[in-house]
Design a protein around this nucleic acid. Structure first.
Lengths: 133, 133
DNA sequence: CTCATTGCAAAACGTTTGCACAAAA
DNA sequence: TTTTGTGCAAACGTTTTGCAATGAG
């Protein structure tokens, strides 16, 4: 029963590690471009295409999770984070983590269907933006 | 107390009506390009840019709702449809409507935040694809 | 040596925009 | 006339890909 905790992440190259590290170091989901900017601190010559390739690989492998927000370019977060959802503030564009998850989701799955994942995004205004408004 | 039922849809041009009609006539959310193809049956000379402009206007106005699915281009559906969510089958790429909605969503909103909308997407396999598998 | 990874530039894709023209008011 | 809408083609931002060079084993 000695199984790796770090998911199925096969051996990663130094660049791929740097990219995954960029996502792990961030306090919020990032875009591919943002991860590229972060990774360049460590590997200045890294190309944007390499980041896109790594993001695709890591997402397929299950090391990264892709988050879709209306009218925003996709963001990614490490799949090692505990299960949660997101609140997107339309005023400031920030994405907040929500730890709660509705218990009744299973009931929504139609008979005969098999749910693998789910995503919940709440849209509105954050406390700070409401105060400033 | 005589208010229009058809949301805030201001006066629409013939093309804009045709585009909205395309979404209303579809049995599932459509992409802008698909709406364009449908609208061309009625107005063969309509341009794709017109569809994109109309979709943006109609979405902003609240006549259309935008649906985001991981790795898919955005789809739209008439906002007049009763509240529901979606199940995306990764095997066949079809989007299914789910009428149920978890009652406890309010509890997920952080204190001080104001939720305007929410979106729930379930990912997995539909009954048909499971049978064929 | 062999094979996978990378940088770069070009291509592809979905979407937006500038502009001249047409339609509506 | 003034304003708004439209087609077209060009521009845009994001993502993918072809290919030669590099790196790992």
């Amino acid at each position: 029963m000695e199984r790796a905790v770090t998911s199925s992440a096969s051996r990663l190259t130094r660049r791929q590690q740097a990219i995954l590290g960029a996502f792990e170091g961030a306090d919020a989901p990032m875009t591919a471009r943002e991860a590229w900017e972060a990774a360049r601190d460590e590997i200045p010559t890294i190309g944007l295409a390499t980041v896109y390739r790594a993001v695709k690989t890591l997402t397929g492998e299950g090391s990264l999770r892709q988050i879709e927000i209306v009218d925003e370019t996709p963001r990614y977060e490490p799949a090692t984070r505990p299960h949660h959802h997101h609140f997107f503030c339309r005023a400031c564009g920030r994405l907040f983590e929500i730890r709660k998850c509705p218990p009744s989701l299973r009931d929504m799955v139609p008979d005969g269907f098999a749910m693998e994942d789910h995503s919940i995004v709440l849209y509105g205004s954050c406390e700070e933006c409401l105060a400033t408004a």
